[in-house]
């Protein structure tokens, strides 16, 4: 118990940045747009969040600006993929390259600096609950916000009319357009919102977790988020479990390393990537056995004007 609680609490903390990115990608993909630029957008978010917090001493401002910059960056993706209808896979890769490069280039002067960042904020009362309290309610405000966001997005997607419209656009853009929904508008908004959340996840890493900016500090978390969307079958609640599972692996691996093990560090660091492949294979095998999965039917397919005319 003494060992379990800190590990579970750390799992939630290190799963949170992945969770934000995963939730964002779910919204984007539900509209039929695949954004493989998450890794780059997270890095830009991490740098923006850190830089703004460094200059303003306000972590909240840093996080908010990161959201805005992430959304603005994804306007490139939306313009090319939604408006011009180019290949979404390649465009996402371009976005990752650009984001990775731009964050390193612009962030040079901030390497080595530290900020106060955001501190833990135990929720009065709730944090006293045995086990659940210290794991879930002795965290920072961004963790609580992510709990809310998971339920909010779940409710939005499955129980509201705008959520239905979003899913319709991702399942059958032709039918959605015939019903009077503007497919490009919905896809633009979903792409911008998803990018904002991914940047927020990146900013969590620098502003809340480490209080530093390090080049390529996301180290593949953006890609893991893309995999978790599939693992979570495009469902916010399931994806949250996946994010905490990966957070747990990361936390565990850090602890094993700190405890001084004979296992070489590179082999421990492989764990999350190996786990991603294994988990993705597992879910794909189950899909083969006929379990209904939530992949939007029009995912990755551009909606051309002439299809509508």
């Amino acid at each position: 118990m003494d060992l379990l609680v800190p590990i579970l609490a750390a799992a939630v903390r290190s799963g949170t940045p992945i969770l934000y990115a995963t939730l964002g990608e779910i919204i984007t993909e539900k509209s039929g747009v695949m954004n493989l630029g998450i890794e780059g957008v997270m890095l830009v978010g991490a740098l923006t969040g850190f830089g703004v917090t460094y200059h303003s001493a306000s972590p909240w401002l840093g996080l908010a600006v990161a959201f805005g910059v992430g959304a603005a960056l994804c306007a490139i993706h939306a313009f090319l993929c939604v408006t011009l209808g180019v290949n979404q896979v390649v465009c996402g890769l371009a976005l990752t390259m650009f984001g990775t490069g731009a964050s390193s280039l612009v962030g040079r002067s901030l390497v080595g600096e530290t900020i106060e960042g955001m501190r833990a904020f135990p929720l009065p009362g709730l944090s006293e609950i045995p086990l659940l309290g210290p794991v879930l309610f002795n965290q920072d405000a961004m963790v609580y916000l992510s709990f809310g966001l998971v339920f909010l997005l779940w409710f939005f997607l499955l129980h509201t009319r705008p959520g239905l419209k979003l899913r319709a656009v991702g399942e059958s853009p032709i039918a959605a357009a015939a019903a009077g929904i503007s497919v490009p508008t919905v896809r633009w908004m979903a792409t911008l919102f998803g990018g904002g959340l991914a940047a927020l996840g990146g900013a969590y890493l620098s502003v809340v977790n480490s209080h530093m900016w390090v080049e390529q500090m996301t180290s593949g978390r953006g890609w893991i988020a893309v995999a978790l969307v599939i693992f979570g079958i495009w469902h916010p609640l399931r994806s949250a479990l996946g994010a905490y599972l990966f957070g747990g692996v990361g936390a565990l691996q850090l602890r094993v390393q700190a405890a001084g093990t004979s296992i070489p560090a590179p082999l421990l660091l492989m764990l999350p990537y190996v786990l991603t492949v294994v988990v993705l294979t597992g879910i794909s095998i189950r899909k083969g056995k006929g379990i209904l999965l939530g992949a939007p039917a029009a995912l990755g397919l551009p909606f051309h004007r002439e299809d509508r005319d």
Partner: peptide
């Protein structure tokens, strides 16, 4: 830094 090349590539 070499990342300026990455920006150009993107």
């Amino acid at each position: 830094p070499l990342s300026s090349v990455q920006v150009l590539q993107g």
